[in-house]
Design a binder for these strands. Structure first.
Lengths: 260, 260
DNA sequence: AAATTAATTCTCAAAAAATGAGAATATTGA
DNA sequence: TCAATATTCTCATTTTTTGAGAATTAATTT
């Protein structure tokens, strides 16, 4: 293990259930000598990616908060999504959570979320949490609009198809045709998801905007209304992105030299 | 430049005003050959720390969103602060923004923020934004409770004191004695800040909890009430942290081997 | 205060990886 | 299709990283 992988491997140790690590424990878990891990950790601490808590225990560092803010402020999808989701949950006039999600490696990740006032539940999809590719309206809408090659890589080519695989393919084709996807209890029991695609081919953006609401309270007319809201919010976001991205974001070299 | 510095240098290029970079531009800015930067960027993209937008332009990657979520969920200070700030802005009964901030390298960074309903302004202090050490109630409260050695390193030893330096020292001593700090228009014109320390020595935690409100609307009685609120919220957070951290977070080695 | 234990840094030679310049290749837009 | 860029590749050289254990430091106990 070398180069960046070394740092990645350490950072990947941290998750919801293991949020604090000692160096010996990392050394153990990674099968790498302690002296090596100490050096790696020292670098990560210097960069703010890890922080020494008390008693030789390390946690994720504040640099992630800093970079997350930058991303929130500067990422076109996130920026466009924030306003749209805010409006969407207000117009929904019912407890719900709105999400904007995109592909992230082999999973789908929500990059903006917003809950309506007085929404008691929280869906499993939430900002920053990687979710499975093939379940839930949010993910399926993204899958449905992926270029064929990429889709094949992610869920396997059309030939190696068992029955479930063929069914998924059919469902995706259907979603593409309809322009939205609605599911219930696929991710969270009792919650329904309604998702529509946010596609800006020129910019390589394939995302999905979705609304999660309590399924039992969702009458058919209400459901149709929300589908319309979601679909139009999604095309609004797409439009905003097209507009924001046409004068392609200028990259100005700053001729800043790096020290050392 | 080698090791981790290489990756850091690339990531540090990204900020609010330069959020999208081409490799040639990075190569230029860093004074490093393009072929080298391509390799570095490839690693960062593989790790999710950078993402290729359209047309050979790179942006910060979603890994930051993922790690930020983990941090939000697992960092004791952040976790304790979220609830406290939520309650605080509700009890304030006036438009305001509450912040929980800590030292971050040579600056102060807010790690949780929460605005009361119908708060029109947004203070410069916001989650993830590094702020100067010596201005604003938020920062001063932190400075005031730093161990002498650390303080000397950050603002210079007691001997090399000009008038301003001596005044700051006096102010810090005063803050330590009073147990809070209130300022007005030090960071944002027209906004007042009230901050109290969140100290948990056993855990090495030195943070500050603050409330920002419109200065012109702030009568003396109201101000006193808010000071009380802030001070008690701060000690509540400290107490919660002591409780959460006494059974020191167990680090369970997972004996997970790294691939490759 | 000394002793014990654990954490962390240091040392150094061997092994591995990064570097840079340019060639080779892919991708993109006209 | 052609040009213009972007990106990857190649390879000899230089520079790190690595790992094992010793040395040091820090924390805790006796």
């Amino acid at each position: 293990m070398a180069g960046f992988a070394r740092f990645q491997a350490v950072l990947r140790l941290f998750d919801e259930t293991a949020s604090a690590w000692t160096v010996p424990a990392m050394s153990d878990a990674l099968g790498v000598p302690a002296s090596t891990v100490y050096r790696t950790v020292r670098d990560l601490v210097a960069g703010g990616f890890l922080e020494a808590a008390h008693e030789s225990v390390y946690r994720l560092g504040s640099a992630f908060i800093e970079y997350d803010r930058l991303l929130r402020l500067t990422d076109p999808l996130v920026a466009a999504g924030r306003g749209a989701l805010h409006d969407l949950v207000a117009q929904a006039h019912t407890p719900c959570v709105a999400l904007l999600s995109r592909l992230y490696n082999d999973q789908v990740m929500c990059v903006v979320d917003e809950a309506a006032r007085d929404t008691a539940f929280r869906p499993s999809y939430e900002r920053g949490r990687p979710m499975p590719l093939t379940q839930g309206a949010t993910s399926k809408v993204i899958l449905a609009h992926l270029p064929a090659r990429q889709l094949n890589r992610l869920i396997g080519g059309p030939k190696d198809g068992d029955a479930r695989h063929a069914a998924l393919r059919r469902e995706l084709a259907d979603i593409r045709k309809r322009g939205f996807c609605a599911t219930a209890s696929e991710i969270d029991a009792g919650l329904a998801g309604i998702a529509a695609p946010v596609i800006v081919r020129e910019a390589g953006i394939i995302a999905s905007l979705s609304l999660v609401a309590d399924d039992s309270r969702l009458e058919e007319s209400q459901r149709r209304r929300l589908v319309l809201l979601v679909v139009s919010a999604a095309s609004l976001v797409a439009e905003e992105l097209r507009y924001a991205l046409t004068p392609p974001t200028i990259v100005e070299p700053r001729h800043k030299m790096v020290k050392q």
